[in-house]
Computed example of a mutant assay.
Amino acid sequence: MREIQIVDAAELAALYAAAAYAVVIDGDAIGLRVGAPAPDLEAYLPAEGYVLVSAWNPASEPRSDAANEAADAALVARLDAAGIARQSAWASAPDGQWREPGWLLTGIDQVAADRLAADFGQAAVLAWGRGQPVRLRMLLPHPNGAATAPHTEWAGAL
C-alpha cells in the first residue's frame, strides 16, 4: 500500500467534487456529478452499489502515460482475478484541462473498494448506492478545521 501525502486535502476534495465524471456503456457516455443521483446510469447498469476508481496519477501527482498505463493494467488484472464487473469511465476537470481514465465497479463492497483504491495510491473514489446521490469518498483523514462539504465523506487513511 502506498502512503499518500497531500498538502491540502480539503482543496483536493473540493477539486474532486467539482470534477466531471462519465461512464461509457454501449458507446454512450453517461455523465455523473458528485451530489446528484445517477438514474440514467442505474437504468443501464442495475446494481446495489457503484464505485468509480482509477489507478492513474497516485496521490494526484502526475505520472507518465507509461506509468499510468502500467498501473491501470495492474488494476484491471486485480479486478479480473476477483471477478469484479467493470465499465470504462473517466474523470476530468470542468474546464477539460485534465482527464484521466478509470473504472466503474459493481459487485464490490465499500471496504474492499477503499482498500483497492488505497493500494493504487488513490486519495478518493466515487461511491453510492442505487437511488442515492453520488458521493465523493476521500480516503484521507478529515483535515482539521476544514468545513464539511455536502456529499463528501472522509474515510480516513487506510
Score class of each variant (00 low, 15 high):
residue 136 L to C: 10
residue 77 A to K: 09
residue 2 R to L: 15
residue 96 G to N: 01
residue 60 S to H: 12
residue 24 V to R: 11
residue 128 W to I: 02
residue 131 G to I: 11
residue 101 P to M: 05
residue 143 P to Q: 02
residue 41 L to H: 01
residue 63 R to Y: 11
residue 141 P to H: 03
residue 156 G to D: 04
residue 28 D to T: 13
residue 15 L to W: 10
residue 33 R to W: 11
residue 18 A to F: 03
residue 25 I to Y: 08
residue 3 E to D: 15
residue 43 A to N: 04
residue 105 L to C: 01
residue 92 S to K: 13
residue 96 G to A: 01
residue 32 L to V: 00
residue 75 L to D: 06
residue 5 Q to T: 14
residue 31 G to R: 03
residue 70 A to F: 08
residue 97 Q to E: 14
residue 77 A to D: 05
residue 66 A to Q: 10
residue 137 R to G: 10
residue 22 A to S: 09
residue 78 R to M: 11
residue 145 G to T: 11
residue 101 P to T: 06
residue 91 A to R: 12
residue 105 L to M: 04
residue 124 A to M: 05
residue 36 A to K: 07
residue 56 W to V: 15
residue 102 G to H: 06
residue 157 A to F: 12
residue 12 L to W: 00
residue 88 S to D: 10
residue 21 Y to S: 00
residue 120 F to K: 12
residue 119 D to Y: 10
residue 100 E to M: 01
residue 30 I to D: 06
residue 25 I to M: 07
residue 110 Q to P: 15
residue 47 A to M: 03
residue 118 A to Q: 12
residue 152 T to S: 03
residue 94 P to G: 02
residue 48 E to V: 08
residue 20 A to D: 13
residue 63 R to F: 12
residue 77 A to Y: 08
residue 27 G to W: 08
residue 1 M to V: 08
residue 118 A to K: 14
residue 57 N to C: 07
residue 148 T to P: 15
residue 51 V to C: 09
residue 92 S to P: 15
residue 99 R to C: 02
residue 117 A to T: 07
residue 68 N to F: 04
residue 138 M to R: 01
residue 51 V to G: 02
residue 25 I to K: 05
residue 133 P to M: 03
residue 127 A to C: 04
residue 74 A to R: 11
residue 30 I to K: 02
residue 32 L to W: 02
residue 115 R to Q: 13
residue 138 M to H: 03
residue 122 Q to Y: 00
residue 32 L to G: 03
residue 118 A to T: 14
residue 122 Q to A: 00
residue 54 S to V: 07
residue 127 A to Y: 03
residue 29 A to H: 07
residue 139 L to H: 09
residue 92 S to Q: 10
residue 151 H to N: 09
residue 78 R to D: 08
residue 97 Q to H: 15
residue 151 H to T: 08
residue 99 R to N: 02
residue 115 R to K: 13
residue 48 E to H: 05
residue 25 I to A: 06
residue 129 G to S: 10
residue 111 V to R: 08
residue 79 L to D: 04
residue 129 G to R: 11
residue 83 G to N: 03
residue 46 P to E: 10
residue 37 P to T: 09
residue 94 P to F: 00
residue 107 G to Y: 09
residue 87 Q to S: 11
residue 63 R to C: 15
residue 142 H to Q: 10
residue 76 V to E: 07
residue 154 W to S: 09
residue 21 Y to E: 00
residue 80 D to P: 05
residue 124 A to I: 08
residue 115 R to V: 12
residue 134 V to S: 02
residue 101 P to C: 02
residue 81 A to L: 14
residue 21 Y to L: 01
residue 111 V to S: 12
residue 69 E to P: 03
residue 152 T to G: 04
residue 7 V to W: 05
residue 5 Q to D: 14
residue 92 S to Y: 11
residue 140 L to V: 15
residue 89 A to I: 06
residue 149 A to I: 08
residue 67 A to H: 06
residue 90 W to L: 06
residue 20 A to I: 15
residue 55 A to T: 13
residue 36 A to Q: 09
residue 138 M to D: 01
residue 135 R to C: 13
residue 23 V to G: 03
residue 48 E to T: 11
residue 155 A to H: 09
